Computed example of a mutant assay.
Amino acid sequence: MTFRARLAAAVGLAALTLAACAAPPTGEPSGEETTAGAGGASPAAAGAVTVGLTYVPDIQFAPFYVADAKGYYDEAGVDVTLRHHGQSEQLFTAIAAGQEDVVVAGGDEMLQARSQDVPLLSVATLYQEYPVVLIVPEDSPITSPADLAGHSVGVPGPFGETYFGLLALLGAAGLTEADVDVEHIGFTQQAALAAGHVDAVMGFVNNDAVNFAGAGMAVRTIEIPPNADGVTPLVGIGLGVLDETAASRPDDVAAVVEATLRGAADVAADPAAAVELAADYVPDLDRPDRQQAALATLEATVPLYGEASAFGAQDPATWAAMVAFMTERGLLEADVDAADAWTAKFLPAATN
């Protein structure tokens, strides 16, 4: 996710939301703990769980803040510490080193890590809809993925969800990278598109598209079309654990999943209240301008959760399609069986 933003200050809080799901892995663990229990038991202690939130404090993590603030983790019987990553920290270094028990990342990123000998298992998918879209100026002649042929498109780099999304979008239109001019622009989507440096950018519908609206630039978003089987071959942001954690601490994993989904349900029911609670976790969120940006981000995020009855759900067809897609595109370093990459057994009975 990740949103390792190097954005202009004017982009503000909403722009920071992008970085947690797209940046390349660099650096060593240097995160900070932000919950009341931050100085508590180590991750290995019974009932103590460290959740890796893969960016600095940000409204994107509202379900976790709400679950913590309302005591949902305590009610579920787990002592949760929310650990935010530093801006240059790898997504999975801390969980691989035993410093975290649960990590928040894209299903595609977890799958790629699994192919690199980091045995991550997705235990819930928070975003039922993939959040990456193609963004073009409102008056652009590009109205479909096929229209991108011969045009320039900006992505932060050849990594993460925006890049995976670009490959899926091109594939659905029968195009390859050779048919377009792919520009690696860092996390400057708003500036690059506004200045006309590129004809289109790949970005997050609940971040970049929100930023453009906040800046007064009229844009259109184009979703990644489904493949021939009617499936978008990418899995969005969710919760992951190591195989060993799933096997040795199943009750703790299930408790974290259940409590987090309760938090997501509350965010969906009342985004404005979630912003108020998140102010205790996110610096400067007590400022009215930051609250307005945060609310716009959550309002764009809630539809990604899907129907309330399906919060956290895993879709076998999408996982299978993603394995096939990422294998075909050379994004996996080793073969991965889709059935080994995810599980629904930790989901609440109402979802599973």
Rank of each mutant, 00 (worst) to 15 (best):
Val104Gly: 02
Phe64Arg: 10
Asp139Lys: 06
Asp181Arg: 06
Asp251Ala: 14
Gly40Trp: 06
Thr232Ala: 14
Ala8Pro: 02
Asp108Cys: 15
Ala168Pro: 04
Pro156Tyr: 03
Glu109Trp: 11
Ala96Gln: 15
Thr232Leu: 14
Glu33Ile: 14
Val241Cys: 14
Ala178Tyr: 01
Pro283Gly: 07
Asp147Asn: 06
Gly196Val: 03
Met202Cys: 09
Ala191Cys: 07
Ile142Pro: 01
Ile185Phe: 08
Ala269Pro: 07
Gly31Met: 10
Leu167Ala: 10
Leu234Ile: 03
Phe92Met: 09
Ala124Ser: 15
Gln87Ser: 13
Ala272Ser: 11
Ala272Arg: 04
Val182Asp: 08
Ala341Trp: 04
Ala215Arg: 07
Val235His: 01
Ala124Cys: 14
Phe64Ala: 10
Val153His: 05
Ser122Leu: 13
Asn206Met: 15
Asp101Val: 09
Pro131Phe: 03
Trp342His: 15
Val231Glu: 06
Ala168Thr: 00
Ala172Ile: 03
Ala67Thr: 07
Leu295Asn: 05
Leu331Glu: 10
Phe92Trp: 11
Leu261Pro: 11
Gly238Leu: 06
Pro57Thr: 05
Gly238Lys: 02
Ala269Val: 04
Thr143Gln: 09
Gly107Lys: 03
Gln292Tyr: 13
Asp284His: 14
Leu166Ile: 03
Pro145Lys: 00
Glu89Lys: 02
Ala296Pro: 08
Glu138Gln: 10
Ser248His: 11
Asp208Met: 11
Val219Tyr: 00
Val155Lys: 05
Ala313Gln: 04
Val235Trp: 04
Ala67Val: 08
Ala310Asn: 08
Asp199Ile: 00
Gln314Phe: 02
Val102Gly: 03
Ala324Trp: 08
Ala310His: 14
Ala22Arg: 12
Tyr127Asn: 09
Ala172Cys: 02
Leu53Cys: 07
Val80Phe: 04
Val78Ser: 02
Gly186Tyr: 09
Ala45Trp: 00
Ala300Trp: 07
Glu299Trp: 09
Glu33Val: 15
Ala36Arg: 09
Ala294Arg: 12
Asp58Ala: 02
Glu75Ala: 15
Gln128Leu: 07
Ile142Leu: 03
Tyr127Arg: 01
Asp79Thr: 04
Ala5His: 13
Gly39Pro: 12
Ala23Gln: 10
Ala294Pro: 06
Leu169Asp: 05
Pro63Met: 06
Tyr65Cys: 13
